[in-house]
Design a protein around this nucleic acid. Sequence first.
DNA 1: TACGTTATTATGTATATACAATAAATGGTT
DNA 2: AACCATTTATTGTATATACATAATAACGTA
Lengths: 230, 230
Amino acid sequence: MRPHTHNTIRENMLSRIQSGEWALGDKIPVETSLAQEYGCARATVNRALQSLADQGLLIRKRKGGTRVCKLPVRYAKFEIPVIREHVEALGSVYHHKILDMKLSSSTASIRERLRLDTKDKVLRVDTLHMADGHAFAYEERWINIAAVPAILNAPLEQISANEWLVKEVPFSNGDVIFSAIGADKTTAKALETHIGTALFTVERTTWSLDEFITTMKLYYKEGYQLRSRL
Amino acid sequence: MRPHTHNTIRENMLSRIQSGEWALGDKIPVETSLAQEYGCARATVNRALQSLADQGLLIRKRKGGTRVCKLPVRYAKFEIPVIREHVEALGSVYHHKILDMKLSSSTASIRERLRLDTKDKVLRVDTLHMADGHAFAYEERWINIAAVPAILNAPLEQISANEWLVKEVPFSNGDVIFSAIGADKTTAKALETHIGTALFTVERTTWSLDEFITTMKLYYKEGYQLRSRL
DNA sequence: TACGTTATTATGTATATACAATAAATGGTT
DNA sequence: AACCATTTATTGTATATACATAATAACGTA
């Protein structure tokens, strides 16, 4: 092993920030000095510094030099898995049940979310996701038929719309909104709970290359926790 | 501008994945071929490929080559701001009110979260964060005195514990748990709402270099939405 | 002083080269 | 076939070099 790789240099720099040697807002030495200090090429130092800048710890400007970010903005990163995998990762047996599915005209709010015209039709699917035979999450979904006509022939009893879309339209873009909401009559019944129970909800709208694919709202059964690391 | 930078190459590769030219699970050409195709050095292709691999779109193995990730795992990244900045970003005037503050022994659950001993004391602070004079979020916080003794002299009426800690202990590590919970008597009163109202909550435990700093639970007023992009 | 131009400096990026590390493929021996 | 050692292909990383780009600093002129 070499004494200093871009990795070890990055770690060393991180500890210099955490220890306060490089304080918030401080200007740190220029690349050439650091390269000399670490005994490596400027390119190696550059790689380490860029990595820290990507993480939001450093701010770099041409000619202006590199500073430790004054007000550290931290991010929490959440994995958005296919629900089946999520349930299985918790050690439970997954299956899903389609509660309702129909081709219909779009409502105003859905048209807005999917940027649709009044005459466009959408496929509306309500799915209950289950873990070990018990309700886990209730999903209301609207799919833009024009964007993915193949959905009409998909075996949605076997593979959930969630999973089918992930595989058919990979790496799409999306908006996500998390919130808490009291269960209404429909969701309470589906999730086997009482009206008013606090439910964790996720709304997601997905598009790919300027075409809107689908929007959905997911209601998790009470007690659900979304965990992450800073 | 050069015809191909690592950036334009990365974008081009992304569109090849999104269009299906490089399908899920497929092996893509080796770096030397791609370098020839794009008319650039292998190092440039390598940088683009590594960037996509960091994002989780590609899986790379020495000798094994590079494949498009079979099951794309998407991440939602949330900014965890200082609450004052959050409120101000929404266009409101921020201020906070300390509802209760006391030095106390730790309860069993807090001791577990902060890895404390039974005799260790903690500073317990309950804060109401307000936007334009109305309740915005209610915060229960426990601070490990041993880790940050200076907190005892901090002007917490002027600067919230939240903000003071961010500036004093930058770039710490943390756990985050999001969930929905019905308001109890205390939270309902603080947030000027009814018992049972669905509240969005965030729990966060923070440590730095093996020392546990603080743990807190934040209850947002009903209707709060956490937004993000995939 | 104020303002516009030029020089300077730090970072950003590309390249050719070299070698390391890993895992797959190959081949030989039992 | 099965197992082990050897070869080979591919990515990972470091380096020296060169030039581009952006922002600051320095300078000169009105």
